[in-house]
Simulated scan of single mutants.
Amino acid sequence: MTTAAPTTKVNLQDVASNRKRGGDIRITLSPRTVGCTSGFGGTLRLTPGEYVTEHLHPYSEEFLHVISGELSITLDDEPVTLGAGDSLLVPIGVRHRLVNTGPEAAQVVFHLSPLAPRPELGHVDTETPLQDGGANPDVGGPR
């Protein structure tokens, strides 16, 4: 006898926007949303001039792929220009801040892996977040 696999499909519109650190961040695939155990990912949308505040991930690498737009990311204070089709690895522990430097909205797909031991350990703010809110509620906790 076989059992049906749990649903692992998530539509972007079914996920709440997290604007705590800037932009429209939507974590679509995570332990909370689909029960995954090795990482999490989603999308980021930044309007012109919008940014994601500086932070680092002490346990995870972050993989970024720019779908559209023009961006600048600083990696430990070193700027890198990104455009549509560019992918970038942010190594574990590297401070980074992402800014839309172009005239149009930018769309990014991201993935972080491996997971931190607990969700509240996975993200360290090195710049004051734009909105108040605790640890990243989008990643951990039960489905």
Rank of each mutant, 00 (worst) to 15 (best):
T3E: 13
P6S: 05
T8Q: 15
N11G: 06
N11L: 15
V15S: 01
N18L: 04
D24M: 07
I25W: 06
I27Y: 03
T28V: 12
P31V: 12
T33R: 14
S38D: 12
F40T: 08
F40M: 15
G41I: 09
G41E: 06
L44F: 03
L44P: 00
G49A: 06
G49M: 05
E50S: 13
Y51M: 07
E54I: 00
H57T: 01
Y59Q: 05
E61K: 10
E62W: 00
H65P: 02
H65T: 15
I67E: 10
S72C: 09
T74V: 12
T74K: 08
L75N: 03
E78A: 11
V80N: 00
V80F: 03
G83D: 08
D86G: 04
L89E: 10
V90Q: 04
V90C: 06
P91W: 13
P91H: 11
P91D: 08
G93E: 03
V94E: 01
L98H: 04
P103Q: 15
E104Y: 15
V109I: 14
V109R: 07
F110G: 04
H111K: 05
P114S: 07
P117E: 04
P119G: 05
G122S: 03
G122F: 01
H123N: 11
V124N: 02
P129Y: 04
D132Q: 13
G133R: 00
G133E: 13
P137Y: 01
P137C: 11
V139K: 01
R143H: 14
